[in-house]
Computed example of a mutant assay.
Amino acid sequence: MVTIPQRTTGPRAGAGSGTRRRPARRAAKSPYPYALYIPAAVVYVVIFLIPTVMAFYFSLTRWTLFDSTFVGFENFVDFFSEQNLRIGFQNTIVYAVLTSGLKVVLGMALGVLLTSKLRLRGFLRSVVFFPVLVSTVAVGITFSALLRPDTGLVNKALALVGVSGPDWLGDASTALLSVVIVDVWKGVGLAVVIYIAGILSIPQDYYQAVAADGGTAWHRFRHVTLPLSWPATYSVIILSFIGGLRSFDLIWTMTRGGPGFTSDVIASIIYKQYQAGFFGLSTAGNVILFVVVTAIVVPLSYVLGKREVYS
């Protein structure tokens, strides 16, 4: 029989009448010399902090390559008076919500499929991830040709089954949605990789417990995969939403904000100001975009982070 020694509450014998103080905890020491942080700090300051401070300053000026004139908040007033700014803000939010939502749903579905027991699992993973590696401009040019109303392969394929396809990029009602679908096709591979990593990190004991209770594949997904892959979902939502708010290259390549201003986003409005030579005005637009992205993503990250802690 094993006896457990009882904990004494008083002072130890021979230790004197005073209580022994616990030694103070030492602060955790970094495993690397602080000098190794210097290169990363220099890169961060040069590439991020200095350009950010300069952007805030030049947003208050009318500037060219050789001189600048301080005008205060006049650039911000002019930017908010843009006639297509309301459409740009609306399209930016719609674009970010649709692309991030579809990437979460499709990424989760493909992640579950590509972690199952499939013969061509490795090949299919490569196929799904391949569009991520292709240049965004090349993707935009390619799909612009595929979606042409008369010569595009998409409408030709629809014609074979008796469907008359619309002018995908020339119709105000379908232009932005067409770009959203192409964006999801190109970017869902990254979401799938994140979900695959998250699903494979789930201990198999949970699945075995569900199987022992007679659970079906739906029960395994609903009660194990879905809640325990929340860290992957959190990452996909944040990354996709930030990318959607900042999206420019694919929209500009496929529609240039058209027809009219119907597919303009904030980034394309800013670029049009650069093209027109209003550098201070476009810099103010960049500052506004930075503030908008920060104001949306930081609270969203906080809310989703709390959900991750308590899931």
Rank of each mutant, 00 (worst) to 15 (best):
A40K: 00
G88N: 00
S30G: 05
P39Q: 04
L98H: 04
D78V: 15
T64W: 11
R86C: 03
A27H: 11
S135N: 01
I87Q: 13
G107F: 06
L85W: 03
Y57S: 08
N84D: 05
A96C: 12
R86D: 09
P149W: 07
F58M: 03
I47R: 14
L98V: 15
A35V: 14
N75Y: 03
E74T: 15
E74C: 12
L98G: 04
Y44H: 09
G88R: 00
V128P: 14
T64P: 07
W63C: 03
D67I: 12
F80C: 04
A41E: 02
G140L: 06
Y34E: 11
G88F: 00
V137E: 04
T61H: 13
K29W: 08
A55L: 14
T151I: 15
V128G: 12
Y44V: 08
P33G: 05
V112K: 12
F129H: 05
N84Y: 10
V112G: 03
M108I: 15
T69W: 07
S100Y: 01
G72Y: 06
E74W: 11
F123N: 14
S135D: 02
Y95D: 02
V112I: 15
A138I: 11
T115G: 06
F73G: 13
G122C: 00
Y34F: 14
V128E: 09
V53G: 08
A35N: 06
R148V: 02
V53E: 05
T115Q: 03
G72R: 07
F58Q: 03
P131S: 03
V139G: 01
F56P: 00
F73L: 15
F123L: 15
I38K: 14
S144K: 04
L102H: 05
V53Q: 04
Q83R: 05
V105E: 04
Y57A: 07
V53W: 06
P31K: 12
F89G: 01
L102E: 06
F79L: 01
F70T: 12
T92D: 00
G111Q: 11
Q83M: 01
S144T: 10
K29T: 13
A27I: 14
L65P: 04
W63E: 02
V43P: 02
V105C: 06
F130S: 15
F58D: 03
F89E: 02
V43F: 09
L120E: 07
Y95F: 11
S81R: 15
L65G: 03
Y32T: 13
V137T: 08
L102C: 10
F76R: 07
K29N: 09
V139I: 05
F80L: 09
P131M: 04
F58S: 01
V132T: 07
L110A: 07
F143V: 05
F123C: 13
L65S: 05
G140I: 09
D67T: 15
K29E: 15
